[in-house]
Amino acid sequence: MKRRTKILLSLILIIAIYVFVYFSELYMDPFIKRILNTGLIYAILGVSLNLINGFTGQFSLGHAGFMAIGAYASALLYMSPETKMSNFFMVPLISPLDRIQIPFFWAIIVGGLMAAVAGFIVGAPCLRVRGDYLAIVTYGFSEIIRSLFNNLQNITNGPLGLKGLPTYTNLWWTVSWTIITVIVIKRIVDSSYGRALKAIRDDEIAAENLGINLFKHKVLAFVVGSFFAGIAGGLLGSLLMTIDPNSFSILFTYQIIMIILLGGLGNITGSVVVGIGFAFLMEWLRFVEMPMNIFGIEFPGILGMRMLIFSILLMVTILFFRQGIFGKVEFSWEGVARLFQKKKVKE
């Protein structure tokens, strides 16, 4: 298939998605819309973590920390001074932040950039530690962030968190950012950088011997990955309308890891589909916590059952579907074309 046709088809798909967004913003049930928004944020997180974990093979547990940075940095910028006043009743906010307010888009970008800076700081020591140790260092990093945010009351309002964030996040924002994330990361993965990243994943020493600059490429993966994590954090903050440091705990990172594992490490399509599906699944699973009536017997709803099922699912995936549900199957226009051709042959 020609490159031009492919770009054309992608453009058509994007336009179709936006048409869908336009109508769903108008007519869709707000509850479903909210789940879809969450799902798209999960998709952004999944794809960005996949760049670090799946393509570069650097097992990072710090994604929640990057998100927290993005969420706080952007929230402090787009909140109106009055809301800030009412939030910071214990300790006042430090001087320049309490008066400024900038548009949502720029606030999100700044949040992403702050997270990217943090990504650079975390990515830099990657050259020295690898494997399990890297996982530990990144885990430590996200705990440091959480602890700092709990204590820096004059910036983050401590454990009280920020409340009453204005809701800017809607499907336009989340869909656009998901598309941007997918395109950017897809482009990186397909470029020479991406091949270098995969080489590092497959054999670090061999890659280094081939003249690949390990430091540059690992840091690149971390910076890009954490930038999008920051963006997703900003979007999530505005969607949930409240953020506090303890919601960005290691559990959140586990959920994202679960998403990329289910979707397949190094599989962008998988991350997006599973990310959206995951949000719906978690809502749908709420029914197990409700009181049920099966064959005339009353079952009381058991709290926490949802998470138990979720963790059993995670274990099953790890043990039996190590390649994820999608394995190595990526979405591509050639694949779609092949699907149609096969059908024709059968007819």
């Binding site: 097992f59 890891i257 926490g304 059952m305 998470m307 138990l308 979720f310 963790s311 995670l314 274990m315």
Partner: peptide, 24 residues
């Protein structure tokens, strides 16, 4: 017999499972 990172993820999952099992 798989790379070590698999077992690491598995232990994370196990920790999750035990906690939620205890809650239930």
């Amino acid at each position: 017999k798989y790379p070590r990172i698999n077992s690491l993820v598995s232990s994370i999952g196990m920790s999750f499972l035990l906690q939620n099992f205890a809650v239930v």
